[in-house]
Design a protein around this nucleic acid. Structure first.
Lengths: 200, 200
DNA sequence: CTCAGATGTTGTCACTGTCAACATCAGTGT
DNA sequence: ACACTGATGTTGACAGTGACAACATCTGAG
């Protein structure tokens, strides 16, 4: 085929659809996402997406899954740079907030758009993996003596809620930060305070 | 008019529309909200809502405003029961989480559905009032010596993010609580740890 | 080299948000 | 007492949407 003619098959539609979806959500929020517009951007007919996703929610679940996998990777990457357990947990928390700030569209989809995660096992599994990355760090903290009075899984949920709230509020501009660095500095302070409290 | 005939004017449409909207969101999430279905439930034609709300977002903003006002009231009510500043702040935090758990539909709308709060001054004012209720408590905490190393407004934002994350994750069933009381107990533990950290 | 399954298209349907034009009512000024 | 004006509600229309069914095209396993 020459450069002008389009092949009947796209070749990489599924990925292209996810990419286009993220663009749309970034531009107009979750409400700005339209299967037909997604198809248009991928240069494909308005029902082509149904060959790759059962319905709109299924597409959102795929985006969420992808997001969780990348979040988990990001947490592990960042925490590995820390020199002791408290520092590793803090770096993980800051990475979480940074991920939310850097990928607000994915983040929104990951936590609020998908209706019932139980219906989307792949997305659920990815979310669980992200949580386990955090849990591993509180378990390590416990062993290192930096955690008294709380079980590691309790501490993991506390820490998760903490950074999650920060990320959500920052994304929706409730916290009036000027820039990314201000937010991350704030996350650093905030997680430090929480760690002090968890240590006793 | 007798009981069967409908008057031409509804009499209390605005309120009825908000009530019906909340029912719909509770049942089917924000995506389940449809202006036409709302109108149907209020027993009114499909364009009647436009006499009370500029468009769908305007209706959502009204729901958000109402929610923030009730949240602020709830925070003040609960915190007034505490005997010292740390306890008052803790009770406020628990009340925040309880509000999210008890009114998940409103909560969702308040924080994620309204696209740009700046366009809806009434909703923004209500949100600011809720935040000020929290800020008053951290200022009091500072005066009482329960807050070192952070300015009251920083502490207020940290506390807000903390309980907000808890509420959001609980609403979306990420935290696997069996019931309301488990969640509130958890919020109690969690805010205690944070307060300890903020005290130094 | 065939042909079955995977991938993409056309056409259609019920439903949605919104607008314009019109109908009815409630209350105020005289 | 009463007319009239603004507030409230209705009818009808339009373009855009998610989803389905029927059909077209391609690809690779045997």
């Amino acid at each position: 085929m020459d450069a002008e003619s389009k092949p009947y098959h796209h070749g990489n539609l599924r990925t292209a659809l996810i990419t286009a979806s993220l663009e749309l959500i970034r531009a107009g929020g979750p409400a700005g996402l339209t299967l037909r517009e997604v198809a248009r951007r991928a240069g494909v007919s308005h029902t082509a997406p149904y060959r790759h996703f059962r319905d709109k929610d299924d597409l959102l679940a795929a985006i969420a899954e992808d997001g969780f996998l990348r979040l988990a990777a990001e947490i592990r990457r960042a925490s590995a740079l820390g020199e002791d357990p408290p520092m590793r947990l803090r770096l993980a928390g800051i990475a979480y907030v940074a991920f939310g700030f850097d990928h607000p569209a994915e983040f929104d989809v990951m936590f609020s758009v998908v209706p019932d995660r139980a219906l989307y096992p792949a997305a659920k599994a990815a979310a669980d993996e992200a949580f386990r990355s955090l849990l591993a760090l509180t378990e390590e903290l416990k062993r290192g003596g930096g955690l008294t009075g709380h079980a590691p899984d309790v501490a993991a949920r506390i820490a998760w809620a903490h950074v999650h709230g920060l990320a959500v509020l920052a994304i929706h501009r409730q916290l009036a930060f000027q820039n990314r660095q201000d937010l991350l500095d704030f996350a650093g302070q905030s997680t430090l305070a929480l760690l002090a409290g968890l240590a006793k």
